[in-house]
């Protein structure tokens, strides 16, 4: 698997790179008048395809369904938004999802940061092997990861629930976190670290005052990615949840038993919340001057 591309890809998901060729270089990428139009239509058409269900989800959060299933358009209403927490079970599931995402993100970011820093900054035996080992979980289908963890928990005789979900989430977040942080801290200027040591700062102080601030943007990006991965995970959670409900698990059960429009309200709220976090993050980054 092309590791470099995955890393830049994950970096891209949460970062955004500024580069661009000269006007002359770009001119040769333009295919005559019609060709260029066709290309742009294709590109925006694909983006529209990606957004079609999103529009439907937002629209159906304002639907007043006739029965238990919010699958067919009836009439417009604000009721669902006025009462987003109408279903006790959905609230519990949603809170579970947030708690699991928070705890697993904290764990995976702490463990993953040390992995990433060691990989970039240290020399040790078996570094290449560790590199490959980190990419391996990304090449295994999710259903296999979920099933394999299930066999482990069965073997150990553990009851499945909140904590087995957290453990499973950290297992797949770890690679993403370590690779994202590593991609963002590669190529940093580390001479300030030497300077701190030369000026008599101890290794611990150098780490907290110099190393940590340098890699902090990478850590934030990785944490956002890990949080989003956990919040959205269905397949691995499904195998290891026992009777604990998360938001995606609730939705899966609801497809058979009755799908309230509040599911759409919460989905839209997550989207708006993420947009706000990303907006605030990029404003903050621009202020610090390191977009």
């Amino acid at each position: 698997m092309s590791e470099a591309v995955i890393e830049e890809g994950t970096g891209e998901l949460t970062g955004g790179v500024k580069r661009g060729g000269s006007a002359e270089a770009r001119a040769v990428t333009r295919f005559g008048g019609m060709g260029d139009v066709v290309l742009k239509v294709l590109a925006w058409g694909t983006l529209l395809f990606l957004f079609l269900p999103i529009f439907v989800i937002i629209a159906f959060s304002f639907n007043d369904p006739a029965g238990k299933f919010n699958l067919k358009w009836q009439s417009f209403t604000f009721d669902n938004w006025a009462d987003p927490f109408k279903y006790e079970q959905l609230n519990t599931a949603f809170l579970n999802s947030l708690e699991i995402a928070l705890v697993s993100t904290l764990l995976s970011v702490v463990i993953g940061s040390f992995l990433a820093i060691a990989l970039v900054r240290q020399r040790f035996l078996g570094r290449e092997t560790l590199d490959t080992f980190l990419v391996l979980p990304l090449t295994v289908a999710e259903v296999v990861i979920g099933a394999s963890l299930l066999t482990l928990f069965l073997d150990l005789g553990w009851n499945r629930g909140f904590w087995t979900i957290v453990l499973a989430h950290v297992a797949f977040q770890l690679s993403f976190v370590a690779l994202t942080i590593r991609a963002r801290v590669r190529g940093h200027d580390w001479t300030t670290e030497d300077a701190a040591l030369d000026l008599g700062a101890g290794p611990v102080r150098t780490f907290t005052r110099v190393t940590l601030p340098l890699i902090f943007p990478g850590i934030v990006a990785a944490a956002l990615l890990a949080f989003a991965l956990s919040l959205d995970d269905f397949i691995i959670t499904f195998f290891n949840a026992g009777s604990t409900l998360t938001y995606p698990l609730f939705v899966n059960a609801a497809v058979k038993n009755g799908l309230p429009p509040q599911v759409n309200v919460l989905a839209t709220a997550i989207l708006l919340g993420s947009l706000a976090v990303i907006g605030a993050g990029s404003l903050w980054a621009r202020r610090r001057g390191d977009t």
């Binding site: 998901l13 990606l50 957004f51 269900p53 999103i54 989800i57 989003a228 919040l231 959205d232 269905f234 938001y247 995606p248 939705v251 899966n252 497809v255 989905a267 839209t268 997550i270 989207l271 993420s274 947009l275």
Partner: peptide, 8 residues
Amino acid sequence: LPFFVTFL
């Protein structure tokens, strides 16, 4: 952006 709406 679509990733921020639950896959299911």
